[in-house]
Design a protein around this nucleic acid. Structure first.
Length: 801
RNA sequence: GCGGGUAUGGCGAAAUUGGCAUACGCACCAGAUUUAGGUUCUGGCGGAGCAAUCCGUGCAGGUUCAACUCCUGUUACCCGCACCA
C-alpha cells in the first residue's frame, strides 16, 4: 500500500459529506433526538487556535457516535459576532465592522470545515444578521413589557480604555473583560435587566440539571445567596431609622459602632446637622479615586471617619453607638450599612483596634484580646440570649425579639447584582426604546423590528461614554410610537452577551421569520442534551442565558425550565512553553498549520489524546507525532488484510474489550483512554500479523468518531459502502473475558508469583495451586498461615507469620 | 482570607474505584531493513544492586491481609470569588 495521502482523502470525504447532507439534522420529529451544543465562537481576526478545536472535538465525537446509534442529531454551529474587537479593527483599518465580521466568519468557516467537524451547516446562525437580532430585540421588548428592564443612575463599572459601562460579570477582578484595563467607578444612568428577580430560580434550577460539580458551585457562589436579618437602628438626633443587614442578629449585644458606606444617602440628607461634613466629603472623594484593585489591597489597613452629629441607638439595649463611614462597607451590598461587632468579625475588629473602640465579647470560645473570634460558642453578655450555644437557635431567638420590638425582620441578600445591559458602542444590537418627553420610555412596536443598526461614518465612541449612534441625527430623531410627538431614540447598544443568551433556541428553527423558533421545533429539540464549553463562561454566558430561558419559560414560550440538561467543560490547551496561549506570548498554535503538516485526523486525535479532556495540557510538537504514526499504522492495516466475516480466535476478546472500552469512554469523555485502547488494539493486530475484513470494519467504526476521514476511506475501499451511513458496533460482555486469566499470588501483601487459571475457578483449587508454587513455599516456610484471601480473577493473598 | 481542584517515571498521562503501580504515547537506548532518513519494524526503558532482593505515587502519621485510592495532619502549585456584613 502506498503512503497515506491525507490531504486528498480528507478533501474527498468532506466533499462527500457536504454533498450528501450527512450531518443535516432531520425534521422528522418521531425519531429519538440528541442535541449536542458547543459554544459558538466569537469570530476574531486572528482565526481559531487549537483550543477551539479541542472545545468542539469532544461533542463532535459524541455526535458522530450518536448518529451511528440511530439518533437524529442536532450538532449546530454559529457565530457570536457582535463585540468590541471587531469594532476596534474596523476603526483601525477604517472599514465597516460588517466587512470585518464577514471576513472573519469566512476564515472561521474554512478552518472548521478543514478539520471536518460534523456540524449541520444548514443551520448556521450569525448574531449580527437582521433576521437574528430582530428576535434578540423582540425578547428584550418582552422583558421591558414585563418589568424586567429599568434605568438607574448609580455607580457603575466603567472601562476608560474601551469607553464603555460594564456589568459586574464583565469586570471580575476589577479588570475589563475585553482589554484588561483597570475598571473605575463612575456615576451614570444605565440600563439594567432585573436578573436578581430570578436569583432564586437560577439557584433552584441547579438542583435539576447535570452540570459538572464545579460549574454548579461557581454559579451558586456567583449568585451568593445569604440569609440573615434587616435591623433598624434609631438615630438619636433625627426622626430617622438606619437599616442594616446582618447574618448574625444574635450578636446584637456586641455592637459597639456602626459603619455606613461613604456614598450612603443619609449623609446627604442630614449634611446640615453633621459637624464634620467637610471631612466626610473629602473621605468620600478619596475613595472614589481608588480603583477596585487599590481598595482590595488595603484590606488590613482600615480607614474611616466618625460622623459627628448622628448617633445610633441599639434597639435591644438602648445604648448609644457612634457611626463611622468607611470604604470597607459597600453601597452595593445589603443596605450599605452594617452593625459592627468587633469581637466576632475580623474587619470590624481591625477597625475597632485602629479607632480605639470597645470590643465586647458575646460568644465564648476565643481570646478577643488577640483577635476576633468567628467560631461558634455559648452566648454571653447578651441578656435573654445568654446561655444559647447553638448558632441557629440564637439567631432565631434574636429574630423573634427584633420582630416583637418591631425593629427587624428576616432578610435575604444576593451577591449577584442586576445586569448592566448597555454599551456605548456601535457594533451591537440597538436597544429598541424611544425616549419621549411626554410618555417617557416607549418600546418600539414589535412590527417595526428589527430596529436596524444605521450606517455610520465614524465608529469611534464619544469621549464621555457616548455611543457613536448619538451622532446620527437621522437615527436619533424619531416620532414617539405612543403620542406621535418628536422623540429621541436610545443610542446605546446591547452587550455582546445578548445574542448568545438564546442562540441555542434559534438553532432549533433557524430560518423562521414569524417566531424566534416554532413551538413544535422547540418541543422536539429542547432541552440541549449536552452542552460543552469553557469554564470562563459559567458565571457570565451561562447565568445570562439561563435567566433569559427561564423568563421565556415563564411566558410559556419555551417548553423546558432549564435550557441545558448537562454541561461539561474542556481544559485549556497551553502553549508548548506551558503558558496560556496568547498572541502577545507568541505561543499560539494555528490548526491550519497542523492540518497542513499532519492532516485533520491527526489533529483531532491529538487534541483528545493529549490528556484528561477536562484538564489543561501543554501542546507538544513531538507528542503529536505519536498520533501521526498511529494513523499511518492504521493505513497499513490494509497490507495485512485477509478474508473473514468473524473475529479470529486470537483477537476476539481484544475486539470485544475495545468496543466496550471505546463505547463507555466516549460517554464519560475519557477520550484519551479510548484512543489508547485503539492503539493497544492495533499493537495486538500487528503482533497477530493479520486482520480480516470483519475486524477491519469494527476497527474503522471505533476510530470513526475520532478520525473520520481515514476511517471512511479504508472502510469504503474494503466494503464499498459508506461507513458514516452504518451503525455503531456492539460487544458481548461474556466475550470480553479470556478463557484463562492471570492472577497474582501475594504473601503478606508482597507479590510472589503469577498463576494462569481458568476464569471463575473456585477458591480452594486456586489456593492449593498458589501454595504449591516454589516461591510461595519459600516465603511461607516455617510460618503459620493465618489467613487466605481470594479475590476471584484477581489475586490470592496468603497471610503468614 | 473563603471556596474548589491537583500532586504518580526524563515528559504528557493510565490504574476496572481498596487488589500486579506506571496502560497508551513522547523522549531515550539497542538491533534489523534502507544508498540515505525527522522512514518503517523488533526489543528495552521508575531507582539501587552482579544477584536474590530492597525501595518507590508531594511530605508525616493512621486504618487494612492489601492504600495512588480511605482517615488525620502538612507542604507546594493551579482555578474561582474576594472588605458580601
Amino acid at each position: 500500500m502506498s503512503r497515506y495521502d491525507f490531504s486528498s482523502v480528507e478533501a474527498k470525504w468532506q466533499k462527500y459529506w457536504d454533498e450528501h447532507d450527512t450531518f443535516k439534522a432531520s425534521d422528522d420529529y418521531s425519531k429519538k433526538k440528541f442535541y449536542g451544543l458547543v459554544e459558538f465562537p466569537y469570530p476574531s481576526g486572528h482565526g481559531m487556535h487549537v483550543g477551539h478545536i479541542k472545545a468542539y472535538s469532544g461533542l463532535e465525537v459524541v455526535s458522530r457516535k450518536r448518529r451511528m446509534e440511530g439518533y437524529n442529531v442536532l450538532f449546530p454551529i454559529g457565530f457570536d459576532a457582535y463585540g468590541l474587537p471587531t469594532e476596534n479593527t474596523a476603526i483601525k483599518e477604517n472599514i465597516h465592522p460588517r466587512i470585518v465580521t464577514d471576513r472573519n466568519i469566512e476564515k472561521f468557516t474554512n478552518q472548521l470545515r478543514t478539520v471536518g467537524f460534523s456540524f449541520d451547516w444548514s443551520r448556521v446562525v450569525d448574531t449580527t444578521e437582521e433576521s437574528y437580532y430582530k428576535w434578540t430585540q423582540w425578547i428584550f421588548l418582552k422583558m421591558f413589557e414585563n418589568g424586567l428592564v429599568f434605568r438607574d443612575k448609580t455607580s457603575v463599572n466603567y472601562c476608560p480604555s474601551c469607553k464603555v459601562v460594564l456589568s459586574n460579570e464583565d469586570s471580575q477582578g476589577g479588570k475589563c473583560d475585553v482589554c484588561h484595563s483597570d475598571i473605575i467607578q463612575k456615576t451614570k444612568e444605565v440600563w439594567y435587566l432585573r436578573i436578581t428577580e430570578y436569583a432564586d430560580k437560577l439557584l433552584e434550577g441547579l438542583e435539576t440539571v447535570d452540570y459538572l460539580p464545579n460549574v454548579k458551585l461557581q454559579q451558586q457562589n456567583w449568585i451568593g445567596k445569604s440569609t440573615g436579618a434587616f435591623v433598624d437602628f434609631k438615630i438619636k438626633e433625627q426622626d430617622e431609622k438606619l437599616r442594616i443587614y446582618t447574618t448574625r442578629p444574635d450578636t446584637l449585644y456586641g455592637v459597639t459602632f456602626m459603619v455606613i458606606a461613604p456614598e450612603h444617602p443619609i449623609i446627604q440628607k442630614y449634611r446640615d446637622s453633621i459637624a464634620n461634613i467637610a471631612a466626610l466629603d473629602d473621605y468620600k472623594a478619596e475613595c472614589a479615586k481608588k480603583s477596585e484593585f487599590e481598595r482590595t489591597q488595603l484590606v488590613k489597613d482600615k480607614t474611616g471617619v466618625k460622623i459627628e452629629g448622628l448617633t445610633a441607638i441599639n434597639p435591644i439595649t438602648g445604648k448609644e453607638i457612634p457611626i463611622y463611614i468607611s470604604d470597607y462597607v459597600m453601597m452595593g451590598y445589603g443596605t450599605g450599612a452594617i452593625m459592627a461587632v468587633p469581637a466576632h468579625d475580623t474587619r470590624d475588629y481591625d477597625f475597632a483596634k485602629k479607632f480605639g473602640i470597645d470590643i465586647i465579647e458575646v460568644i465564648k470560645g476565643g481570646d478577643i484580646t488577640k483577635e476576633a473570634y468567628t467560631g461558634e460558642g455559648e452566648l454571653v453578655n447578651s441578656g435573654e440570649l445568654n446561655g444559647l450555644s447553638n448558632k441557629k437557635d440564637a439567631i432565631n431567638k434574636a429574630l423573634e425579639i427584633l420582630e416583637k420590638l418591631g425593629c427587624g425582620e428576616k432578610g435575604v441578600q444576593y451577591k449577584m447584582k442586576d445586569w448592566a445591559f448597555n454599551r456605548q458602542r456601535y457594533w451591537g444590537e440597538p436597544i429598541p426604546i424611544v425616549h419621549c418627553d411626554t410618555c417617557g420610555m416607549v418600546a418600539v412596536p414589535y412590527e417595526e423590528l428589527p430596529l436596524r443598526l444605521p450606517e455610520v461614518e465614524n465608529f469611534e465612541p464619544g469621549t464621555d461614554g457616548e455611543s457613536p449612534l448619538a451622532k446620527i441625527d437621522s437615527f436619533v430623531k424619531c416620532k414617539c410610537p405612543k403620542c406621535g410627538r418628536d422623540a429621541r431614540r436610545e443610542t446605546d447598544t446591547m452587550p455582546q452577551w445578548a445574542g448568545s443568551s438564546w442562540y441555542f433556541l434559534r438553532y432549533c428553527d433557524p430560518k423562521n421569520d414569524n417566531e424566534f423558533a416554532s413551538q413544535e421545533a422547540l418541543k422536539y429539540w429542547m432541552p440541549v442534551d449536552w452542552y460543552n464549553g469553557g469554564m470562563e463562561h459559567v458565571t457570565r454566558h451561562m447565568i445570562y442565558s439561563r435567566f433569559w430561558h427561564k423568563f421565556l419559560y415563564d411566558l410559556g414560550l419555551v417548553p423546558t425550565a432549564e435550557p441545558y440538561a448537562k454541561r461539561t467543560a474542556q481544559g485549556l490547551i497551553l502553549g508548548p512553553d506551558g503558558e496560556k496561549m496568547s498572541k502577545s506570548r507568541g505561543n499560539v498554535i494555528d490548526p491550519n498549520d497542523v492540518v497542513a503538516e499532519y492532516g485533520a485526523d491527526v489533529l483531532r486525535l491529538y487534541v483528545l489524546f493529549m490528556g484528561d479532556y477536562e484538564k489543561a495540557a501543554p501542546w507538544s510538537e513531538s507528542s503529536i507525532k505519536g498520533c501521526k504514526r498511529f494513523v499511518d499504522r492504521v493505513w497499513s492495516l490494509q497490507d495485512m488484510l485477509t478474508e473473514g466475516t468473524e473475529y479470529t480466535d486470537g483477537l476476539r476478546s481484544n475486539f470485544h474489550k475495545t468496543i466496550k472500552k471505546v463505547t463507555e469512554d466516549i460517554e464519560a469523555m475519557k477520550f484519551n483512554t479510548a484512543i489508547a485502547a485503539l492503539m493497544t488494539l492495533i499493537n495486538d493486530i500487528y503482533n497477530a500479523g493479520s486482520i480480516n475484513k470483519a475486524e477491519l470494519g469494527t476497527f474503522c467504526t471505533l476510530l470513526y468518531p475520532f478520525a473520520p476521514h481515514i476511517s471512511e476511506e479504508i472502510y469504503n475501499s474494503v466494503f464499498d459502502t459508506v461507513l458514516s451511513e452504518q451503525g455503531w458496533v456492539s460487544y458481548d460482555e461474556a466475550l470480553c473475558k479470556d478463557d484463562t486469566i492471570e492472577i497474582v499470588v501475594q504473601v503478606n501483601g508482597k507479590l510472589k508469583a503469577k498463576l494462569n487459571i481458568a476464569v471463575d475457578a473456585d477458591k480452594d483449587s486456586v489456593i492449593a495451586l498458589a501454595l504449591a508454587d516454589e516461591k510461595v513455599k519459600e516465603a511461607t516456610d516455617g510460618k503459620n498461615i493465618l489467613k487466605q484471601i481470594y479475590v476471584p480473577n484477581k489475586l490470592v493473598n496468603i497471610v503468614a507469620k
